[in-house]
Design a protein around this nucleic acid. Structure first.
Lengths: 249, 249
DNA sequence: CCGCAGCAAAGTGAATACAATTAAATCCGA
DNA sequence: TCGGATTTAATTGTATTCACTTTGCTGCGG
């Protein structure tokens, strides 16, 4: 089948002028992968992409190499790139890894301290979350808003860790593609409430300059998301064995 | 100055035939970076490398992109690649991150269990280490041998974790270039003895199927290397402030 | 009917040529 | 002499072309 929904970039896309084609092609192909336009395990054909995106093979190849670096593609010499498959067990593991890494990030942040600006953003996220959760139930769109609040909290803390390698690794964990239907997990009000309480405690630990407490709290916080995911998967009954294979032995 | 000690690949290098030029060029450039032939912060000139390595710019560019993916190079559009600088604080942090990741790997290994082959390799490494350390002091070349033993232990355990992302992240931590003079750290017999004891305990925890104990032990094990590094740096008196900047606030 | 050899088509790898951007040097003009 | 604009060189980005590898097909022989 032809690559539907993968169109060439319109000329001079808006105000933020694109640096070069390779980068924009990278974004487009990444979106195609994450969005499921090209399915997992599929082998990528360079000429097809170059025709679809209306560029030569050169920027396409550059993009594919970049995406392989991000871990989204596999490369085999003389055989090109294939979309990496992420079994359920790998997705679950990714949460575990992220929990560990974000724990370290929280520790670093507590050791190094937050800038005034960072404190402001985090406190704002805490207040905004409190307000959103005060009513005891969600209105339409609230979840999307909370997703932003949550992102601000984590991103700011990650920045405060002041370590690029750590940030990149966590970013890779976030990019692990989870077939989007499964991504809908633990969106009950009670769960979000609990997570937001975690945020408060983590922030307190960091402000109190208690690095190890911050690490443990953050680790448990992220790990909780994994547990929710596993739980909801088991409840739906699907592939419980695979989840098991990764959690037990 | 011209790129000394960076020579083109001899034709048909030995029995293991090289897959393609990009890959071998990648290895050569990586070695040049890690070996210090090209210095940190330096901007990389594509044509110079292509002349030195006697290939066209195409495989050179491919290699540079791959290395950027590994985190060794920075990329700026229309400005090319530069060798990433690793301040002492980043090197110290890398140990901390690796400790956390290898801890997770040990936990996974304990959860998932070891194959017969893996058990064999690890037990062999333990025995070999015991034998090497029995005499109470090192002979010439013993340290190189122990380095191999140590590598077997960690690599095998990492394989037993059965998670590719984890393995790649740890590999990145290992590739953080530390100006090789500083790399000589904690090579006293007593320290190595202590590390080898750690290996025994970690293996016991894994065989006893105690995931969390395995994780804590491994974490502390790797973290100990960091402590030795910091200690030896402070003793040499150099850049103690930078180390501080990463450990305090 | 199965298997293997050889051939043809498709796809990737590398080199060269060209375009666009950036950095440097030069040439004014104040 | 200094500042700045303009031109020139150097360097990166993209396209095109050719070479090589892989793969699938075809047909011959068993």
């Amino acid at each position: 089948m032809p690559d539907s929904s993968l169109s060439p970039l319109p000329e001079a896309a808006g105000p933020g002028r694109v640096a070069n084609r390779s980068l924009s092609v990278t974004d487009q192909i990444r979106d195609a992968i994450l969005g499921g336009t090209v399915s997992a395990g599929e082998r990528i054909n360079e000429v097809r992409f170059s025709k679809t995106l209306e560029v030569s093979r050169t920027p396409v190849r550059a993009a594919l190499q970049a995406l392989a670096g991000e871990g989204l593609l596999d490369y085999a010499p003389n055989r090109g790139f294939t979309v990496r498959e992420f079994p359920l067990s790998a997705i679950v593991d990714a949460y575990e890894i992220r929990a560990s890494l974000e724990g370290v990030a929280a520790r670093f942040a507590a050791e190094r301290g937050l800038s005034a600006e960072e404190r402001a953003i985090i406190e704002e996220s805490l207040v905004a979350g409190d307000k959103l959760l005060a009513r005891g139930e969600f209105a339409e769109g609230d979840l999307t808003i909370y997703r932003g609040i949550n992102g601000d909290f984590h991103d700011t803390l990650l920045g405060a860790a002041r370590n690029r390698m750590l940030a990149e690794m966590i970013r890779i964990c976030h990019h692990v593609p989870m077939s989007s239907s499964r991504n809908i997990v633990a969106f009950e009000h009670r769960d979000v409430r609990r997570r937001h309480d975690d945020h408060h405690r983590i922030y307190e630990a960091i402000m109190a300059r208690e690095p190890w407490r911050a690490e443990i709290l953050m680790r448990e916080h992220v790990s909780g998301v994994k547990s929710s995911l596993v739980k909801s998967l088991i409840e739906r009954g699907e592939q419980a064995d695979i989840v098991n294979g990764s959690a037990a032995g």
